[in-house]
């Protein structure tokens, strides 16, 4: 007997009852193809790091269960053909990483709608960090250019001054 963990990204269009139906369906699959289902966690709606099936967001769900290696492959095939699942990943974990279920599925689904803005905020914060960094580089770059331009202007002024000292240059100007 081995311990497994599956993370499933469910389509963001599914909410409330439809979402619950899908999660229950996946739970049944885990019980059929795996063994004892120990824990289900709904992480909620999160922004994806890259587009999957043209979707920006996805609802993350994690299942922990015991099972057999051969049947896990069958479960992955089922998930692959499920149109509501954007992506999934099954990995082997240690017994110490198994957690006990703390909240019901209903409360978790209800709670994730309120907690989702926080998840979004994190991603926005990361995005702003990157946005802040780029202007810094830009400002430095612009400052460099400006300094170089200043030097050029100074050099140009010196040249003009030199030229103006020359009598021939003055003559040219007069002419």
């Amino acid at each position: 007997m081995r311990y497994y963990e599956t993370v499933v990204i469910i389509h963001p269009a599914l909410e409330g009852g439809l979402l619950k139906d899908n999660i229950v369906e996946i739970q049944k699959l885990a019980e059929q193809k795996g063994g004892d289902l120990k824990n289900t966690e709904v992480w909620g709606r999160k922004k994806l790091a890259y587009l999957i099936d043209k979707q920006k967001y996805g609802t993350y769900t994690m299942l922990q269960f015991t099972g057999d290696g051969v049947k896990i492959n069958e479960m992955n095939v089922e998930l692959e053909h499920n149109p509501n699942v954007l992506a999934y990943m099954t990995i082997k974990i240690n017994k110490t990483e198994m957690k006990e279920q703390t909240a019901d599925l209903d409360t978790q689904i209800d709670g994730q709608s309120s907690s989702s803005p926080e998840a979004d905020e994190v991603n926005i914060a990361v995005a702003t960090e990157i946005e802040e960094e780029i202007p810094d580089v830009g400002v430095k770059y612009i400052q460099k250019i400006l300094e170089e331009e200043d030097e050029d202007i100074v050099a140009g002024n010196e040249l003009e001054a030199k030229l103006s000292d020359d009598p021939e240059a003055e003559e040219d100007k007069e002419n």
Partner: peptide
């Protein structure tokens, strides 16, 4: 592993942001 489930990017082009 976290790239596989879109928690981290495989690659980002900062010019697109």
């Amino acid at each position: 592993q976290s790239r596989n489930i879109a928690l981290l990017p495989f690659s980002t082009d900062y010019r697109d942001i």
